[in-house]
Design a protein around this nucleic acid. Sequence first.
DNA 1: ATGGTGGTTTCACCA
Length: 259
Amino acid sequence: MKIASWNVNSLNMRLPHLEQWLREAHPDIVGLQETKLEDARFPDAVLAGYGYRSVFHGQKTYNGVAILARERQIEDVQCGIPGFEDAQARAIAATVAGVRIVNLYVVNGQAVGSEKYDYKLRWLDAVHGWLADELKAHPRLLAMGDFNIAPDDRDVHDPNVWHDDHILSSSGERAALRRLLALGLHDAFRLRSDEAGVFSWWDYRQGAFRRNHGLRIDLTLVSDALKPYVRDAGIDRTPRTWERPSDHAPAWVELAGLP
DNA sequence: ATGGTGGTTTCACCA
């Protein structure tokens, strides 16, 4: 079972890319972020044509998340973080094939010390409480998304730029991510590879993709119960080479042998 | 110093 996370940076603009990628990669479950679409405009009929059911939680202009599943039911859908008032559509969860899927578009945070940074840390604290509850109810849990945090120096192209006081790599953000992992979650990519320089996001500016000046900020966390079933994990750079791409590439995990 | 969005329609906001 192939499960992927992709920040599409506007599903309206990127629908042709998503269609092409679904045809080529045929993932079983997909979490999308930054759909930037009101629910009434979500292209669920188009995706159904490719065999995918969709659930979505969106808004105009910003944010927006969705879960797609091919030829499988999507059950117990939760939009937003329970008990956390949030005007921004950044979280959706559902159960597919007996696995609890949590899809997150983590706050960017703009700059360390800014109001948006404070919101990022508060938001991550709410996610921590939510995932703790979800893990109790669903031992088989997978939390994916655009985490907007590079876990360590292997995940940034230049640690001198992306240091412990810089947004997306700051010590406060990394501590928040470690706190999530301490719930009994594992960065699936790091179960399979200790390679540095494998990225999921590259700035549109200054030829960053061509020079591989990127970050690995799109992550899949698997619970203790799912960890033994992670067969492989990677990042598919192909859609980033297409014309007018998202600035993110799909990060995928393959689970095998689930009873 | 690029790209998406939507309004303020030529620019502000967000990433």
